Simulated scan of single mutants.
Amino acid sequence: MRRTVMQIHNHSFRGVQAPRRGLTIALRTLCLAALTAGAVSGAGVPNARADFQAGWVAYERGDFLTAYNEWQPLAEKGETRAQFNIGVMYDEGKGLTQDRSKAIEWWTKAAKNGDAQAQHNLGLAYLAGTGVGQDYAEAVSWLKRAAGSGLIRSQYALGRMYDYGFGVEKNEAEAAKWIRMAADQGFDKAQYNMGKRYRDGIGVTKDKDAATKWFMAAAERGHVRAQHYTGLRYLSGDGVKKDAIAALMWLTLSARAGDRAAAKDRENLVSRLPRADRQQAESLADKWRPKQASAGG
């Protein structure tokens, strides 16, 4: 499993507000396609925080063995961030011999202590059968815990499990409920998915206005297909007022990102618009910047 290293700010230790630094997960493609961190339990003791920080500083400079030596005693004492991070180190083989079974072992400890990131990773591991036997029911169990803690990617993954009937009875309404939670927190893939649901009436009542709203929300965060669909909606006036310039802007953005269908639609639209409109749309596309997604994992 591929993981990325980053900082997570402003998580609480037991009654003490302090910045949390740790390792967090990257979106990973699994058998459900585009599924894929969280709550933390710590002693809140200054020395423990200093030891964890020393490990983080070592990790940032690439001294993985020192990081492990700082974190391992904390992990043995039940410090969930250290447990999770050691799991990532075993998973990636950084400073340690790569061993997914050991990664699972440490993530399981952190997950049982309530760490949502570890719960999410376990869910994906059981889903894919990576380091453990494939077990959809167990995957659902862990994803539910992480999703219940508000972890966005777990909410989305759990929704997709209900879509496919993996480990649970297939239930499109339940899928829509969990995916909507992730969409409400700004996850572009969930927003795009909700757009399709409202367009096609999958787990929700068909609603073209709602479909357009969600496609536009995802488009504004840089989702390429959503940008294509948003362009088409501005072109047709489906759920939004017709606007050829806005249509061309969104089609241009999608085409620039490699969407071939959008490029074709853009070419057709360009041939029908006056030069001034084309220039305005190009200028808007040049100035456009994506909205920042939620930091909720």
Rank of each mutant, 00 (worst) to 15 (best):
T36A: 15
A116Y: 05
T130H: 01
C31L: 14
A67R: 09
Y162Q: 03
A110I: 07
F215C: 03
A285S: 12
W71R: 06
F166V: 08
D51R: 14
L65A: 15
T130A: 00
S41A: 09
V88R: 00
G129V: 01
L124S: 06
A182P: 10
R49L: 14
S294P: 12
R153F: 12
K109E: 00
A103G: 10
L23H: 09
A43N: 09
F13W: 03
D135Q: 07
Q155M: 05
K189G: 01
G195L: 05
P274G: 08
G22V: 04
I245V: 15
A263G: 15
Q227Y: 00
G129R: 04
L158R: 04
I104S: 09
A43T: 13
D115K: 12
R275K: 12
A285G: 11
A118G: 02
R260N: 10
K264D: 11
D91N: 13
V45C: 12
G150I: 01
A261E: 11
A255T: 01
R225G: 00
I25K: 11
A263H: 03
R199E: 13
G258E: 01
R21E: 12
R81L: 15
K264M: 10
D277Y: 04
A173H: 07
L124Y: 09
D265A: 08
Q119Y: 03
V240D: 01
Q117G: 15
G150L: 08
Q227H: 00
T205V: 06
A26K: 06
G123S: 10
E79V: 02
G148S: 06
G123D: 03
K241C: 03
T4K: 15
H9C: 05
A137D: 05
A157F: 04
Q83C: 07
R100I: 10
R160D: 04
A58H: 02
A125L: 05
T205D: 10
V57I: 11
R100C: 06
A34E: 15
D163T: 01
R289A: 12
E169D: 13
